[in-house]
Nucleic acid binder design. Structure first.
Lengths: 139, 139
DNA sequence: CGGTATCCAAAAGGATACTG
DNA sequence: CAGTATCCTTTTGGATACCG
């Protein structure tokens, strides 16, 4: 359990990154996929219902074709998103969450909701911090 | 509650990113700070105990001074990390989590632990995906 | 020791054009 | 419609050198 908070935990977490030649361990990558800019929005959207490609693109808004494609492919490969391509003309592809994906969405939503709940505290902390840095340097 | 999973949720989530001229909403930024490569490891380390700068650097391993400094400053500004600089020679600076930081660490740890628990399922999905892409294209 | 400042390489991300 | 391929800009991250 390299990611738990107990003694020695982080030393093991280190092995994530330092082992596996290319650079990053698989856990780290999954975490980055689901918390990425578009990954979060894809998960939250698909948690509500399934979407077609362009539909999802409009729903999220501001995402390029390339990034949405890339995000969906990554999450599909991780077993989080299910891709249902119907062999018709014009092409129709539906995206939905797998069971694993719904679990992931729950975790990410918990984090996103925490962020939302505590945003005021963060904003306050930032204001205080910035205050000390501009005015506080005169004492 | 722009981040909840209910109807219309993502449309509101969109406003995160599209409003606030520069690009990204504050919620998005906090989420990126705590889930960033070094942010996660800092939170998990400091959840166990407080650390001095270089001590923390060794604990995490593989992080440059610049990135650790940057990560700690960002999290300090967000009110997540507490910085205690003692005016002595040589300088001594201790880092710990604030109350807000402990909440953040819990959320991040939940996500990290989920990732760890389900890593085998993800690996399996990846293997299946890669299989279909190399061998399956011959039918 | 605990930073800051600068430079540089690598990766992420977006606009556009094209394809089945 | 749902991508793929290419190009280019922005951002990220690390190595190095220096400062209080």
């Amino acid at each position: 359990m390299g990611v738990s908070g107990e003694a020695g935990g982080v030393s093991q977490v280190r092995r994530w990154m330092e082992s596996s030649g290319e650079g990053l361990c698989p856990q780290r990558l999954v975490l980055e996929h689901v918390t990425s800019r578009w990954g979060v929005l894809v998960l939250l959207s698909l948690e509500r219902r399934s979407f077609r490609f362009s539909e999802l693109r409009r729903e999220i808004g501001g995402v390029s074709e390339k990034m949405l494609t890339q995000t969906l492919q990554t999450l599909e490969r991780d077993g989080i998103v299910h891709r249902d391509a119907k062999p018709v003309i014009p092409p129709r592809v539906d995206y939905s969450l797998t069971g694993l994906g719904r679990e992931a969405a729950e975790q990410v939503r918990a984090l996103a909701e925490w962020t939302e709940r505590r945003m005021d505290a963060v904003a306050e902390a930032r204001a205080a911090y910035d205050e000390l840095r501009s005015a506080g340097s005169s004492s």
